[in-house]
Design a protein around this nucleic acid. Structure first.
Lengths: 202, 202
DNA sequence: GTCTATACCACGATAGAC
DNA sequence: GTCTATCGTGGTATAGAC
């Protein structure tokens, strides 16, 4: 199972629809969905605004396509982390999943980052299309943490719901301060995972 | 030093400028800045769009005013937490500050939440006006953590920059999932503080 | 599959009456 | 301090030529 075509290299790299998606996702992340106009996207792609409608039925539809790809990337990353750590210790599994989540945010284009940044205030139609997949992803994390807790590896007194959302907040907030171009993703992942698992107290 | 007039009860509650600020802040949080129109704000306030310009020079100016109030609330909350825990243990101080930050997010209207939600993609003029105050607030946290680290209360191996940003991410993300109307702020603050300080491992 | 041209609308903002 | 009325701009979206 390969990555969505928009993020991979097709018959010729960055052509047509894929190229539009790449650029739109990047602009949505930078400026937000509402603040990004179709004219601006078309400009960056190198075409006229009207031509976008050959590929997408509406601006909302374009955002939905971007977010769908983002969610597919997240699920794929989770799969891989799960497979790679079937027999590992609880701490190792957590670290692998944190690393996978962060890698998904940055290593397959701005699709997943767009998800983090735009979903909350996205138009209702878009939310309705994307939220179920998002919930499924969150449920996988919830299950992971619950299994660690019932195995006795995770503090029994912890409110798993809040703990998970706080971890998500920590990881996802990195889109505001982490610059993938400057590198250091591994260190960030290590710090966040360690902090979540062991805390910062001496 | 009292809270900004917009959040307190003036000579008559929720009048004029304060009322506009309250409602605008709430709509900005719900829908985002760009997606919220002046007509919509005016509607909710009970006046016509043009009348808003008696109180604010522009939409950007209105957002700036909202965010300024939000930052003032944050600084005030930090002051109070600092005063209340001068001689306390490191863990207690952290918990007090986490609690204060979260309380600031929810107990003085949507001003601070608006900050979290809109600042990143706000127009350049707005950012230029607000970012310095935001940076000052972040610097106070950085100083707090650095002092705990040099006192030996906080793990010397931790990257304080990433740790602080991850904590901010955890706290601020609560605007996406915590409903102040349903209560439970204290528990959430406790969980996030505990998690930051001690981790979730058993 | 991309173009030009344009319809139609909502936006932020202004002017002047009251 | 709020109203009505309106201006100019830029937005999404459509139609039809190429």
């Amino acid at each position: 199972m390969s990555l969505p075509s928009a993020t991979g290299l097709g018959t010729d790299a960055l052509a047509g629809r894929s190229r539009i998606l790449d650029i739109a996702a990047a602009l949505f992340v930078e400026q937000g969905y509402e603040a990004t106009s179709l004219r601006q996207i078309a400009d960056a792609v190198g075409m006229k605004a009207g031509s976008l409608y050959y590929h997408f039925a509406s601006k909302d539809d374009l955002l939905t396509a971007v977010l769908d790809i983002g969610m597919e990337v997240m699920h794929t990353a989770f799969d891989a982390a799960e497979l790679a750590t079937v027999d590992a210790s609880a701490g190792t599994r957590i670290e692998a999943h944190v690393r996978a989540h962060l890698a998904a945010l940055y290593e397959h284009g701005p699709y997943t980052a767009a998800h983090v940044v735009t979903l909350r205030t996205a138009p209702a139609v878009v939310r309705a299309a994307v939220v179920p997949t998002r919930d499924a992803y969150e449920a996988r994390w919830a299950d992971l943490l619950a299994s660690l807790q019932s195995a006795g590896d995770l503090d029994a007194d912890i409110d798993l719901h809040v703990a998970r959302l706080a971890l998500f907040g920590a990881m996802n907030s990195s889109v505001e301060w982490f610059d993938p171009a400057r590198g250091g993703l591994d260190e960030v992942a290590g710090t966040i995972a360690h902090q979540f698992w062991n805390g910062v107290a001496r």
